[in-house]
């Protein structure tokens, strides 16, 4: 190989384009009330501040445009950035919205269903999971295993625990305490506080507890407050899961 051609091949290797699939939360809006949106966004972020901090985000305008709302893209982008999120795309915008987005340096993606660069298969309000790739030459996915959080001491009133995966608690959760997990929640004692499982939209997440006396239970945003919990499910071991968007509370002990 001549010196020249060697240099050439090095140069070729110095830069390479590859396709990769990333999981990015998609924000779907269904209102043009900026005040309301700001308030709701702040609430969502408060539930999982660590997750949302500097998180990339794609803004989906499909619903807004379908309902004929007129939104100010510039103000909307400003609102999202102020909330500490990093906008990496606007999807399903109209001609004007796309132009405004590009002017702000935000890439534009086509609506879902059509060819899109950011692949989003399972769309819950916040999409996180990357679907398994079947063909090996498809873009590689980065798989991150989140360890289970184990807690052996009581969670007292006013304490708040956030787990990026599953959480197992071997002591009681007091009234006024809050357990928030992206995965499942297990409480091997009395659950008196709030338990929010699958907070990023995992509808398969479950809550298990030895003694249900919770103030609030929630899976992927579907919740029940204490008042909704009948005597038949209280004060005993139960599991809570989501079926057709409603919370099912069942005895944990299966009688065969």
């Amino acid at each position: 190989m001549s010196q020249d051609s060697k240099k050439k091949s090095n140069l070729i290797n110095a830069l390479e384009f590859k396709t990769s699939t990333f999981s990015v939360p998609v924000l779907m809006l269904a209102s043009d009330d900026m005040g309301l949106l700001e308030q709701l966004l702040a609430q969502k972020i408060k539930q999982a501040p660590e997750f949302f901090k500097n998180s990339p985000l794609v803004l989906d305008l499909q619903e807004i445009n379908k309902q004929g709302f007129i939104v100010d893209i510039i103000a909307l982008v400003d609102l999202i950035r102020k909330a500490g999120l990093i906008l990496v795309g606007v999807r399903a915008g109209n001609v004007l919205q796309n132009k405004q987005s590009l002017d702000l340096g935000v890439p534009v993606y086509a609506a879902q269903g059509r060819e899109s660069i950011v692949e989003s298969q399972r769309l819950t309000k916040f999409q996180v999971e990357t679907p398994p790739t079947i063909e090996s030459d498809k873009p590689q996915e980065i798989k991150v295993t989140v360890p289970t959080t184990l807690i052996t001491h009581p969670i007292r009133s006013g304490q708040r625990i956030y787990a990026a995966g599953d959480i197992v608690i071997m002591a009681q959760v007091s009234a006024g305490a809050e357990i928030i997990a992206e995965g499942n929640i297990h409480v091997y004692s009395t659950l008196r506080g709030r338990a929010l499982a699958g907070v990023l939209g995992d509808i398969d997440a479950r809550i298990f507890c030895f003694d249900l006396q919770a103030e609030l239970i929630s899976i992927a945003g579907n919740y029940k407050v204490s008042e909704d919990l009948g005597a038949s499910v209280r004060n005993k071991p139960v599991q809570i899961y989501l079926k057709d968007k409603s919370l099912i509370i069942k005895d944990i002990v299966l009688h065969h």
Partner: peptide, 13 residues
């Protein structure tokens, strides 16, 4: 009782 519980949380954290 609830205030004590809160205080216990503060003691442990």
């Amino acid at each position: 009782v609830r205030d004590s519980d809160r205080m216990l949380g503060i003691l442990s954290s």
